[in-house]
Design a protein around this nucleic acid. Structure first.
Length: 321
DNA sequence: CACTTGACCTGTCCGC
DNA sequence: TGCGGACAGGTCAAGT
């Protein structure tokens, strides 16, 4: 479920915590989670220092001093969780004289208690217990701290690629523009949507080759805000409504980033904390509740093959505008 | 070519 | 209480 705001939240967290750290070892338990680890890990991962953390669409990119990058897709249940002492790390970075950690290497099976934790009941209390747990697929060890790639459903993956080749992977060659980029205008948005005139609007919003980063949650929320039924064909939506949808989509994405993303079940940020956007969601997972605009009961339907939440009064299926 | 469905997985929830 | 089946939803591949 990590969509653009969730991946961006993780990116911001990791940027603060792991840039400047040196990888001492890597472990992984599930080959499909890290398909090319064996091949390249020793040469380009071990002893590499993290130089940058980027995001494109729903993918996370961790750049390394070896001119390789870790490309990570969290798919539905992936998590990137840092465990260790953050403060000491940033001090180390500032001093630049990288102190060699001479402590004995921590056993991979030894559980590590997250340092950043909130008590149960706190709105942002951690979902994470001791790590590793049975969803842990990859452990990136920095000697004095660790980064865990957890993925309950094993759909996610991590690949090691030369940084210069990252833009050439199939996904990046096809993926559409970033919706929050300042150079992406309402005009661009409308033109891209109109490439799929006969398709339902929700299917188009979810199509990563049209726009990057939108998934089920923000498709439902933005369509509700713009009062468009998800099954409406693009050809039947006026430019004014599409422009409005563009603005509402950006609003929803920005608000969610501000709130640390949406946690339904699995999503947590780089410190293991939940996001709180869903508390403010108007329709997503709110079937049987009253519409905040007109009090009509929100219903759950199926659109573009996904569970879809709408207000049947505010979002009527238009056959023409 | 456009669109839908199935596969990839595991955990949870519902009904019997 | 146990068990089967539906469901969750990002992306690619296969099918209609």
């Amino acid at each position: 479920m990590p969509e653009l705001p969730e991946v961006e939240t993780i990116r911001r967290g990791l940027e603060k915590i792991i840039v400047g750290k040196k990888i001492t070892s890597i472990e992984f338990d599930w080959a499909k989670s890290f398909p090319n680890a064996k091949h390249d890990a020793n040469a380009f991962l071990i002893e590499a220092t993290i130089t940058n953390v980027r995001r494109r669409a729903k993918l996370l990119l961790i750049d390394l001093s070896t001119n390789y990058s870790l490309v990570i897709h969290l798919k539905m249940t992936g998590q990137m969780v840092f465990v260790g002492d953050q403060k000491r790390q940033s001090e180390d970075r500032r001093s630049k004289t990288e102190e060699k950690n001479l402590q004995s290497p921590v056993s991979s099976l030894q559980s590590t208690e997250p340092k950043v934790r909130f008590g149960a009941g706190h709105p942002n209390h951690s979902l994470i217990g001791k790590l590793p747990d049975k969803s842990t697929r990859v452990i990136i060890d920095f000697g004095d701290s660790k980064l865990f790639f957890n993925d309950q459903r094993k759909f996610g993956w991590m690949k090691l690629l030369p940084t210069l080749e990252v833009p050439n992977i199939d996904f990046f060659k096809k993926v559409g523009p970033e919706p929050l980029s300042s150079s992406f205008t309402a005009k661009d948005f409308i033109l891209r949507l109109k490439k799929r005139q006969k398709s339902a609007i929700k299917a188009v919003l979810l199509d990563q080759t049209i726009i990057a980063g939108v998934g089920n949650i923000y498709a439902d929320e933005s369509l509700f805000a713009a009062k468009i039924h998800p099954d409406t064909k693009i050809i039947n939506i006026s430019d004014t409504k599409l422009k409005n949808l563009f603005n509402e989509l950006k609003k929803v994405l920005r608000l969610s980033i501000k709130l640390g993303g949406s946690t339904d079940k699995n999503y947590v940020d780089a410190e293991g904390k939940k996001g709180s956007y869903l508390k403010f969601a108007k329709v997503f997972r709110r079937e049987k509740e009253p519409c905040p605009r007109c009090k009509t009961t929100i219903i759950k339907i199926r659109s573009a093959g996904r569970g879809t939440h709408i207000c049947p009064s505010c979002q009527r299926l238009a056959t023409n505008f």
